[in-house]
């Protein structure tokens, strides 16, 4: 480590998901906010332990779906009414025939908003992130569970936070270079 400024945070490594959830709860109670927990699969209790409850994603998907629905109806409407072709006197605005396209466009735009919205909110693709500087972090995608308290947290103190993390049953606490 080059110096205290070059530290991204302190990373505690756990063997079991329950330990990570418990440790995250404790860290939150202790007043730490700038932190993140990493696990090889989704743990329902974990984001709650971090104090994250709501996601804007459903709203994004709803708006996307409504746009798709509107666009999917207006397109056949506009094509059939603005460029009228009279086939046996049938109505130009023959709305039942426009429903399948409206439906498919709703699903298409809502699905695209779900995926692109999720990636955008998560800040992905992200070519570089400091947590990967820790070689053992490769196990976060296999069988280990990590809690990282970031140096930007107001309560962060290299020695104090390290001591605190060591009391939580961590297998190892290491500092992460920025």
């Amino acid at each position: 480590m080059a110096g205290p400024l070059a530290i991204y945070g302190l990373m505690a490594e756990f063997d079991e998901p329950s330990l990570l959830v418990a440790a995250t709860h404790r860290a939150y109670q202790e007043g730490y906010r700038r932190m993140d927990a990493y696990s090889p699969f989704r743990i329902e209790e974990l984001h709650e332990a971090l104090g994250v409850h709501h996601s804007r994603l459903p709203l994004i998907v709803l708006i996307g779906g409504l746009c798709g629905c509107l666009g999917g109806y207006l397109l056949p409407y506009w094509v059939s009414v603005a460029y009228p072709i009279n086939v046996g006197g049938r109505p130009f605005h023959s709305w039942p025939a426009f429903i399948p396209v409206t439906f498919e466009c709703t699903i298409l735009v809502a699905s695209l908003s779900a995926v692109l919205g999720m990636l955008a909110l998560n800040g992905l693709p992200m070519p570089y992130h400091p947590v990967f500087n820790l070689p053992r972090f490769a196990l976060a995608s296999r069988n280990r569970f990590f809690l990282c308290i970031e140096a930007q947290d107001p309560r962060f103190d290299l020695d104090g936070t390290r001591r605190f993390l060591e009391t939580l049953g961590a297998r190892e606490v290491s500092s992460v270079a920025d």
């Binding site: 927990a37 989704r42 743990i43 984001h47 332990a49 996601s55 699903i107 699905s111 998560n122």
Partner: peptide
């Protein structure tokens, strides 16, 4: 993988997106 790092916050949004996709794919 686009820099996926298994963050709990990411997992939360990921699961939401996945369930919504499943809900959309079902009528589809």
């Amino acid at each position: 993988a686009m820099g996926w790092r298994g963050s709990a916050v990411h997992w939360h949004r990921y699961e939401t997106a996945y369930l919504l996709l499943a809900g959309l794919a079902t009528p589809l």
